[in-house]
Nucleic acid binder design. Structure first.
Length: 420
RNA sequence: GGAAGCGUGCCAGAGCGGCCGAAUGGGACACACUGCUAAUGUGUUGUGCUCGCAAGGGCACCGAGGGUUCAAAUCCCUCCGCUUCCGCCA
């Protein structure tokens, strides 16, 4: 939810943000009028309640003889209060709906849609192989380590088995990510991956992208698409102590996505799948620190990319491609030789106070007053990274060189050899 | 899955249907006293919404949501959570 105070003072800011996202600026005016209407309704109900309260006290003190007449008036007041409260509730609902309809205000993101990103920088140089390039699935199958057919047999399309060295490679990668994060002072977490509607709603995943989310109707729970969700809800309705800096967590979890609307896209291999593992960073900080914290998270991501030795670029995502909660987002995209393209491996979002406002996450400022905190998240490693690692480190015979940082997790092996 | 009990402010812990936003104790903070610390004394010690330039008002909140009543922390219902016991599965 955006800050209503800011909206009242500077509605143009919100209109401009909507336009930059390619979204409808009119929702801003709907929210403004809902806000005015709600305040009027609240005021009316408050006044009536005050009257009823005061009058009720006189009944308590009245003599038995006077009571019947007073009770009569009391009933009238009660009915008036009830009516006012119904109006108040309706006004609140209208406001809440209008409030939820507005995504976070962008902060520095370039205007436009998916293609309008800005490339911040390139790191590393794509290797030109002097032999026929294999894609990650061909390599993984050659290693006997990615099994899509049995994934489909057991669970359907976009499911897979990692076995042997790819299973190990994933563990090595995720372990390295967690170890790196702990080294930077983050608290490691294994979060629940089934969450209540409030957690999903609070993190902004039940808006436009609701059909991306698996829902267990029988239990009214959702499977998370990222551990950002439980990590954000972890401190919901709490007042945090941020006096000694941001609170940083790193979660390791499986992630589940329906991939609705992506039929035909990335159908080969494990680039786009319904279930994958991810190590995710999550920070709670003061709003003034959020932009700097965002850069820090990006830095940690780049450190991981350097460790796996793949060429990548960093993009500043355009407003229209931001999630509901994000004010700004940087993606790191690795070079995939098989596609001769950069594909997203990490994504770090600054959600400013948007998620925290919904989730009730606050901190105390210098004066001891509660304020809404800012939240940020960022990817440190995912199953998809295996794609970039396999492809960029492939050798003519279908073997794959193991980046030095991952060797400890593979029993020290320097090269993964094909089994056939 | 069945049964019982419980759910109040930072913590502990009271609370006849009106005088309870809430006793009391502890903690924390401020001031005073003391050579320092400790002890002692006094005071402060919630959040949200709303009106107001401000001072300061008003309303709401006692696990959540409904209901009864002129009036509910207090009565009733549902749900959630915790504890204990029984059963079942690992």
């Amino acid at each position: 939810m955006i800050d209503l105070r800011i909206l009242r003072e500077d509605p143009d800011l919100a209109r401009a943000s909507q336009s930059a996202r390619g979204a409808d600026p009119a929702v801003v005016d709907r929210l403004l009028s809902a806000d005015v209407a709600r305040r009027a309704a609240v005021s009316t109900a408050d006044t009536l309640r005050a009257e009823q309260k005061a009058f009720g006290r006189t009944i308590g003190r009245a003599s038995a003889a006077d009571r019947p007449a007073l009770l009569e008036r009391g009933k009238q007041l009660s009915a008036e209060v009830k009516a006012a409260e119904v109006a108040e509730t309706e006004a609140n609902q209208v406001l809440a709906a209008a409030h939820l309809a507005i995504p976070n205000l962008i902060e520095g993101a370039p205007a436009g849609g998916e293609q309008d990103y800005i490339v911040v920088k390139h790191v590393g140089t794509p290797v030109e192989f002097d032999f026929p390039v294999r894609d990650h699935l061909a390599l993984g199958e050659g290693l006997g380590a990615i099994d899509m057919e049995r994934g489909a047999k057991v669970s359907g399309a976009r499911f897979y088995f990692l076995r042997g060295v790819c299973a190990q490679l994933q563990w090595a990668l995720l372990n390295l990510a967690v170890t790196t994060a702990i080294g930077h002072g983050m608290v490691p977490m294994v979060p629940p991956v089934l969450v209540k509607p409030e957690a999903m709603e609070g993190t902004g995943f039940l808006g436009e992208h609701a059909d991306e989310v698996y829902r267990l109707a029988a239990d009214d729970l959702y499977l998370v698409g990222t551990s950002e969700v439980p990590l954000a809800a972890y401190h919901s309705d709490e007042i945090l102590d941020l006096s000694s800096g941001p609170l940083r967590y790193v979660g390791w979890s499986s992630c589940f996505r329906r991939e609705a609307g992506s039929y035909g896209k990335d159908t080969r291999g494990i680039i786009r799948v319904h279930q994958f593992d991810k190590v995710e960073m999550f920070s709670y900080c003061r709003p003034d620190d959020a932009a700097a914290e965002h850069q820090r998270l990006l830095g940690f991501e780049e450190q991981m990319l350097a460790a796996v030795e793949v060429p990548y670029r960093v993009i500043d995502t355009a407003a229209g491609d931001l999630g509901t909660s994000a004010a700004r987002k940087f993606d790191c995209e690795a070079w995939l030789p098989s596609q001769r393209a950069y594909r997203e491996l990490t994504s770090t979002s600054n959600c400013t106070t948007f998620q925290a406002r919904r989730l009730g996450v606050r901190y105390r400022d210098e004066d001891g007053k509660p304020r809404v905190a800012a939240t940020l998240n960022g990817t440190l490693a995912t199953t998809r990274w295996l794609v970039a690692i396999l492809e960029n480190h492939q050798q003519p015979d279908g073997s794959v060189r193991v980046p030095a940082a991952l060797r400890p997790g593979l029993g020290g092996r320097e090269v993964l050899e094909p089994v056939r």
